[in-house]
Amino acid sequence: MESISIYMSGTRTLDTITRQLELAEDEILVKMTQASICDADLRAWSGMHMPSDLPSFAHIGHEGGGEVVEIGKKVREFKVGDKVMAFGPLNTFSHYFKGPVQNFIKVPDGLDMEIACLGEPICVGMFGVFHSGVQLGDIALVAGLNFQGMIAVQGLKKRGAHKVIAVDYSDAHLALAKKIGADFVLNTNTQDVREEIKELTKGKGVDTTLHSCGYWNPRTEDYFNMCIDITRDEGVLSSLPDMMSPINVGLHRLHHHAIDIRFNALMHHSPEFLRIWVPLLMRPVVQGDIDIKALITDSYPLSQVNEAMKKFSEDEDQVKILLKP
């Protein structure tokens, strides 16, 4: 099978190439319905440091999904015509892409494919919510309103938070967070967030904090330390995104004030772990409890992937940009 694919040949350089795809016996071939740009894609494209234990981003794209058009001779988990969600480095920025069965999960019955093709980043965000430690009646804070942060705003509220505070640097992000359920929004560019939180919580700090500012974002360190500072004694601080370069953080407060620190990393467990968790994480989305459509801020044809990446890089109001064949 010959496929038109996107290849990252250098910093800020995405080339359209023709790629030959030959199926191994445990692989499936998928016709791409939709892909999307991850913050990690943006970091790699920008030429920032990438940890050595990550797979190459040259054949770019790990978010997306589509329809199975061919299966390897040992494949029993899927059949031609199945709709699937991609989980892993599969070069989803491609008209066709392939991979082993362990990197795919069937789309839940009846789910809109535009949402289903966002299954991987949805599940990453939902996993953060499920493991946030939020309790009924908590005051919760989400620091960083990327795609997963926006999911957390909704999920923490649905999971029992009495109030959710959303913190970001983009007024557009904050307005969207307010629309989808945040009770308070604070802009780190124009407000003293620590003082505002102190006032809102009568000096106690928030019960549950979810940090969602990482990957390419230069505010990662500031936001992480802010989360440490404003989490109450014996509260929970969970961090969702990958922070791919070292940062300096105030560990003393975490220890001395008995703060429970959690790193929620759905995609770095075994395939068996994903098969258990993905259906559970997608269930609230299938049921309509979490609004995903509102988080899609732009869409481009795959042929304009360079323009799409440039847009995501330069426009800090973007949340999730889709790519279509």
Rank of each mutant, 00 (worst) to 15 (best):
V167H: 04
I197N: 05
D222L: 11
A140R: 00
I261W: 14
F224T: 07
Y215F: 09
D168F: 05
F184A: 01
H211P: 03
L176F: 07
G214Y: 08
K158I: 11
S238F: 00
I115D: 11
F224R: 07
E196C: 05
N187A: 12
I165N: 01
R159W: 09
L141Y: 09
A172F: 04
D207H: 06
V153M: 12
I139H: 04
F224G: 02
Y223G: 05
M226A: 09
V249I: 15
K178F: 13
R194I: 06
C213W: 07
I261E: 12
I139Q: 06
R232K: 04
A175S: 13
G137M: 01
V129A: 13
E114L: 07
F224I: 08
M126P: 14
V142F: 03
A258N: 15
L210K: 00
V193L: 10
V164A: 05
M126W: 14
S238M: 09
R159E: 08
G181H: 06
T188L: 06
V129K: 08
G203Y: 03
K163D: 05
L145Y: 07
G128V: 03
Q148E: 13
P246A: 09
C227R: 02
F224Q: 07
G133K: 08
E114F: 04
D260T: 15
V249N: 10
G149F: 11
D233A: 02
D207K: 00
